[in-house]
Amino acid sequence: MSPDDKWRHRESGPVVRPYAVTGGRTAPADGDVLDLLTVIVATGQPAAAEDAARLTPEHRRLLALCRRQITLADLASDIALPLGVVRVLLADLTQLGAITVVRQRPPDQRTGNDVLQEILNGLRAL
């Protein structure tokens, strides 16, 4: 049994209440609610020692997963924590400058026909 599994029951899920790992906070510190497909990446900026000391194991696991660009949905699934919890933890990491959002496309720009064509070609080739 790995340490991660210790507080997780096969049937019932984690024994610890979901928002215990955020210290009871249910809203992101910056008030930003990230979309499921927001792509995040570690900045590689070293955190100040005192900040780094405050990071929980969950923060560290998230940060490790962000070495490569990854969506919020993938992060939450990989780390097996509820979305709301992951949003709170990511906001902490953003405030420390440890992660940043990767801009996917200009906001409000409709998906163009060239993209749709690429998706179609990709689906047909599956």
Binding site: T43, A47, A49, A52, C66, R67, V102
Partner: peptide, 10 residues
């Protein structure tokens, strides 16, 4: 304290 801060790929 810095060891787990990953190099960014972008």
């Amino acid at each position: 304290a810095r060891s787990d801060i990953a190099p960014a790929d972008a």
